[in-house]
């Protein structure tokens, strides 16, 4: 995450890349979140200001779409897939076990800031259910045991 001072600059750059078009709002927030991992309040304000749209509209987008987070996320984002194939093959059990082992609930971040655990509706890797995605990597055919070993590699 860039230093405090460079935040406004980053927002300006990204908004400019999208040519100040308000229809690009979803894309702008995605690009910002890619850099920051979450969307701080002042960033949303600045986006609204630069696009000349009400803050309520930016907030509506940021809360309607599940990919956006208004809370800081950890260094690694773990998305536990809860698609149908994962569900029938024990995906919920995997998620519970992760919560227990890392000491967090879904949507929370570990105290050391390493992991944020979230659930996701199908990552499209159903043949290898149950599956989790850590950052951009997909891990399949999981058991609780196997997942804990994978987590260790990220720590």
């Amino acid at each position: 995450m860039p230093a405090e001072a460079s935040l406004p600059k980053l927002v300006d750059e990204i908004v400019e890349r999208h040519r100040y078009e308000d229809y690009a709002l979803v894309g702008i927030l995605q690009d910002l979140q890619k850099e920051l991992r979450w969307l701080p309040r002042e960033v949303l304000r600045q986006v609204a200001d630069r696009l000349d749209v009400p803050l309520s509209r930016v907030y509506a987008i940021a809360t309607f779409y599940k990919a956006f987070s208004l809370k800081p996320r950890g260094k690694h984002l773990m998305l536990s897939c809860q698609g149908t194939a994962c569900h029938v093959r024990g995906g919920a059990r995997i998620l519970e076990n992760v919560e227990r082992q890392l000491g967090v609930k879904t949507g929370e971040t570990t105290r050391d800031g390493q992991f944020t655990v979230e659930k996701v509706r199908c990552v499209g890797c159903c043949s290898l259910a149950p599956v989790v995605m850590i950052n951009a990597d997909t891990h399949g055919r999981l058991t609780s045991d196997k997942l804990m070993k994978i987590i260790k590699k990220y720590e």
Partner: peptide, 11 residues
């Protein structure tokens, strides 16, 4: 926007 859980042919 292949959203149906359990389908991944589009991916």
């Amino acid at each position: 926007d292949e959203g149906d859980p359990g389908a991944y042919m589009d991916r």
